[in-house]
């Protein structure tokens, strides 16, 4: 039975589903990376995702326009980000806690809206598989990578883009400076507040898309608490990736691949209790970090509010 794991069907299955599963993590974690790089920890990602998922679903079902759904999810995510930014930057609230507050708010509000506006679980015709010419027809590779919906492709394209912005642009330099040494950045004329507003709103926007990628692309339904802890895993993956987009990609892929592996382990009847199988991705994520003994430091100003000396 264990040897079945190495058959082509299974390997292709694991990889293809790992890539699908990684998508919401990627959006949310890349967004969180920008926030943390500028010194802000947002634990409210899950709430932003849930509101994004609901909004996208509702707009898509009302208008029949999926892109409008994504756009609305982005706007709702951005508004949540704006609120978070105000609380974090202007009111200098403790970030871990305000994030938990926003999480609970999003969790409750999305469920409330779902119950009052939709009333029941419905389905929507979500983003279809988007086949790329030539690439999708490739044997194996095509099946794994190029028979996914469009939001999957965009999430992966986001990784190099985020890397480029963070490392090769002035904006990225400012973001990193604000996260490492806000006093110095401030003295050089960089507005710490403006940069943090920007990154938190960007993070909210991407979390909104993460929600949309679930409700109108991967699953095509909305259900209460449908993210089920996914947003918290996304935050953890930022630490796994050591605040680097490609590291985050590695973490998201590792976690998702092991998750799809454990599904296959159960399907193939390998005699491991189901609960133990479900633990695998969590344990392995920790183990990989232990073995790799990363020496990367967190951004120095992470979680620290910036007060301008007057």
């Amino acid at each position: 039975m264990i040897s079945d794991l190495f058959s082509m069907t299974v390997l292709v299955g694991i990889l293809a589903s790992g890539i699908r599963l990684a998508t919401p993590y990627l959006y949310a974690a890349i967004g969180e990376t920008f926030g943390q790089r500028s010194g802000v920890l947002n634990l409210g990602v899950e709430g932003q995702m849930l509101l994004g998922a609901f909004t996208a679903f509702y707009v898509a079902i009302q208008t029949g326009n999926l892109w409008l759904g994504v756009l609305s999810a982005m706007i709702v995510g951005a508004v949540m980000g704006l609120a978070m930014a105000f609380v974090t930057v202007n009111l200098q609230a403790v970030q871990g806690i305000s994030g938990i507050g926003f999480y609970l708010f999003g969790l409750g509000l999305s469920d409330l809206l779902f119950q009052r506006v939709l009333g029941t679980v419905e389905t929507v015709k979500g983003f279809p598989k988007f086949n790329l010419p030539v690439l999708s027809d490739l044997p194996i590779v095509g099946e794994i990578f190029f028979q996914q919906n469009i939001l999957v492709y965009i999430s992966f394209a986001l990784v190099p883009l985020a890397w480029f912005v963070l490392n090769k642009t002035t904006l990225g330099l400012k973001i990193r400076a604000v996260g490492e040494n806000p006093e110095a950045a401030d003295s050089l004329g960089v507005s710490v507040a403006r940069i943090r507003y920007l990154t938190i709103i960007l993070g909210g926007t991407l979390s909104g898309i993460a929600g949309a990628s679930l409700s109108i692309a991967l699953l095509n339904v909305f259900q209460q608490n449908m993210t089920s802890g996914l947003g918290f895993i996304a935050v953890a993956l930022v630490y796994f990736g050591a605040w680097r987009p490609f590291g985050v990609l590695g973490g998201a892929l590792l976690f998702s691949l092991v998750n799809s592996l454990q599904l296959w382990v159960q399907v193939l009847g390998i005699p491991i209790p189901s609960d133990i199988a479900v633990m695998m991705p969590y344990i392995l994520t920790i183990l990989v970090l232990v073995i790799s003994v990363s020496r990367v430091r967190a951004p120095s100003a992470l979680t620290k509010p910036f007060k301008r000396e007057e």
Binding site: L91, I97, L104, L109
Partner: peptide
């Protein structure tokens, strides 16, 4: 009211209290 409202309210209280610290 749906219990979801209770959760949302809980979240609002957390955000407001933590913000009032300033």
């Amino acid at each position: 009211v749906p219990s979801a409202l209770v959760i949302a309210l809980n979240g609002l209280v957390v955000v407001f209290v933590v913000s009032s610290e300033i």
